[in-house]
Amino acid sequence: MSTRKPLFGVGVSTAVGEARETLRLAVEADRAGLDLFTVSDHPYFGARLDAYSIVGVALGRTTDISGLVSVTNLPSRPAPMLARTVTSLSALSGGRVVLGMGAGGLWDDIVRLGVPQLTPGAAIRALAEAITLVRALSGGGEPVTFDGEFYQVTALEPAPVPAPPVWTGSVGPKSLAVTGRLADGWIPGHAADWLSERYRTSRPVIDEAATAAGRDPRDIATIYNLPGVISPTPLTATRDARGRWVGGSVGQWVEELTGAVLEHDASGFVLFPVREPLTDVALGTWAREIVPAVREAVAAG
């Protein structure tokens, strides 16, 4: 049974045309007591806002909620500068940042930024180096010299700010092993949940790599992106023919998420609209009805 207090978040739009609404919803999520807001990172699309710009402005307008880029497009954000970005945001916000990290997926788009394309193996090795270097450049200490395959820094002074938690969006076995060795959390890809084949086959890879590295696998959180409707009345079926969560009433959400924490060690959930934009009604029901009920049920065990 999980002993971790689950986190609850919401995904907000990165569309340029929704900029004001995105910031308003982040403020509302903060007021409603959610733990984090998340934004995606696709800098090759002109109609999308820069992910870290959203996080910075939203953190400046909020007081308690944390920001997460889910997940950082690492090939377009070199690790030394990414370290400066996240430690700066942490210092400015009082530590309200989580660092999402990805090796890069849409390479046909990524290379249009002028970034050299990496093989899948090289991209995963670069991910491991980046996590290591971001941590080395955080928390103070002696100047860092790092001579890696992808990143080199010389006598670079670390920021006096601790590194934020690192969550990955790892998918393949080698990337999952990096998560087990180095990361603090994992966000399963393709909105897979605790009953999915992806989770059943992937989480053991993380756990085995963590154990081999001398880590406790339980220290690596699993946080789920959850698309799904919040319906006014119960649905006949809360999962589709493939077993994917489709949503349900407040009571059905509460039952499902409570079971995910107590029976499957889920560490957090992000309401992640896909087909329709996030609405005030959905955010309010999620934050003020579903989340408190799950927190209460989990605390009661």
Rank of each mutant, 00 (worst) to 15 (best):
Y199A: 04
T63F: 00
G33H: 08
L235N: 01
A210R: 08
G104Y: 06
T238Y: 02
F272G: 00
E157N: 04
V254S: 03
G172F: 04
L92E: 11
A47L: 10
L68M: 15
P116W: 01
T62E: 01
G251Y: 05
P232S: 07
I220T: 10
Y52C: 06
Q252E: 06
D30M: 08
R218P: 00
L113D: 05
F37P: 06
R96K: 08
G248L: 06
F8H: 02
L127D: 01
A213S: 15
I230T: 04
L7N: 01
A91Y: 03
G140T: 07
E197D: 14
L283P: 13
V97H: 07
D193E: 01
L113E: 05
P292S: 02
R198D: 01
K174Q: 13
G141N: 07
M1Y: 06
A32F: 14
R61A: 15
T179M: 07
G141I: 11
V161H: 01
T233I: 10
R61W: 04
P78C: 06
P6E: 00
V16N: 09
A136R: 14
T233Y: 03
R135S: 08
G172E: 00
G9H: 08
L92D: 03
S90D: 02
D147F: 00
A192M: 04
E28I: 04
P158T: 06
L74Q: 09
V69Q: 09
H264M: 12
L23F: 15
V12D: 00
T14D: 06
V71A: 10
D64C: 07
V161R: 02
H190M: 15
I206T: 07
S175W: 01
T222V: 15
L7I: 05
E289G: 02
A26C: 15
R4D: 06
T63W: 00
P143M: 11
N73W: 00
L271A: 12
T279I: 12
T62G: 08
L283Q: 02
A163V: 09
L7R: 13
T132G: 06
D109C: 05
L89E: 01
G284F: 05
W194G: 00
I124E: 00
Y224W: 13
D30F: 09
P232L: 10
T285Y: 05
R84F: 00
R48Y: 15
A213N: 03
T285K: 05
V55F: 07
